[in-house]
Amino acid sequence: MATERTDVPVEVFLDGVTHRVRRRDAQTMLALMQRVTGETPYMWGPSIVGFGEYHYKYESGREGVTPAAAFSPRKPAMTVYLLPGITQHPELLERLGPHTTSVGCLYLKNLDDVDLDVLEALVRESYDAVQPPK
C-alpha cells in the first residue's frame, strides 16, 4: 500500500465511486473506521481512504509511512487493508462471512453479507497493532 497522502477531499472521491454497492459500502467503511480510529480520513493516492499514519521500517532498511487503517472501494470488491497482515486474525476471519484475502488485504463483495461487528473487531485489532506503545 505504498502511496502518498493527498489533499483530495474524501467526499469528492467517494461521490465519484460509480459502482452502487461499493459506494454504499464505502460510506459504511468510512463510518466504521472513523469510529474505530477516531481519526480524520484522508486520501492516500488516487483511491485509498486512510486513517492515521503508521511509520514502518523493514530489516532491509526500507521505510515509509502508510495509513494505520485504510480501505478502497475497488470495482471487483471493497479492499480493507489490515496490518500487520491477515494471518494475525484467523478466528475473526472464520466468523466474518464471505471474503477473500491476500497478504495484507481483505476483499469483500458486499458488506450486507458479512458480520459488521466482526469486521469492526478486525479493523480495531489491526489499527491497535500499529499504534505506538502508551
Rank of each mutant, 00 (worst) to 15 (best):
L30M: 07
I48L: 05
T40K: 10
W44I: 01
Y54P: 04
R35M: 09
A31N: 12
M29R: 05
S60P: 08
M43S: 09
S47G: 09
A68M: 04
G38R: 07
P41V: 02
R62C: 01
S60D: 06
Q34D: 02
A31V: 08
Y54N: 07
G52V: 03
T66M: 11
G64V: 01
Y42T: 02
L32F: 12
P67G: 01
E39H: 08
S47N: 07
S60R: 11
E59V: 09
K57R: 15
V65W: 04
Y54R: 04
T37M: 06
A26V: 06
G61H: 12
V65G: 06
Y56W: 14
A69H: 04
P41L: 00
A68K: 07
P67Q: 01
T28P: 02
P67I: 00
L32Q: 14
I48F: 05
K57F: 10
F71G: 03
A69S: 11
Y54M: 11
G52Q: 05
K57A: 15
Y58W: 15
A26S: 14
T37R: 01
F51V: 08
F51Q: 10
V36F: 05
P46N: 15
M29T: 00
W44P: 01
I48T: 05
G64I: 01
Y54C: 09
W44T: 00
G61E: 14
M29L: 12
R35K: 15
S60K: 12
A26W: 04
A31P: 02
E53M: 13
G38W: 09
G64S: 02
Y42K: 11
K57N: 05
E53C: 09
G64T: 02
R62F: 05
H55T: 13
G52H: 07
T28V: 14
Y42H: 14
R62I: 06
P41W: 02
K57P: 04
M33R: 04
L32W: 14
A31L: 13
L32H: 11
P46R: 10
E53Y: 10
T40R: 06
G64F: 11
G38S: 04
G38D: 11
G45V: 02
Q34T: 12
I48W: 10
L30G: 03
E53G: 12
V49K: 00
S60H: 03
V65R: 14
G61V: 14
M29P: 04
G61Q: 14
G52W: 00
F71S: 07
S60C: 05
L32T: 01
T37L: 02
G38C: 11
M33C: 09
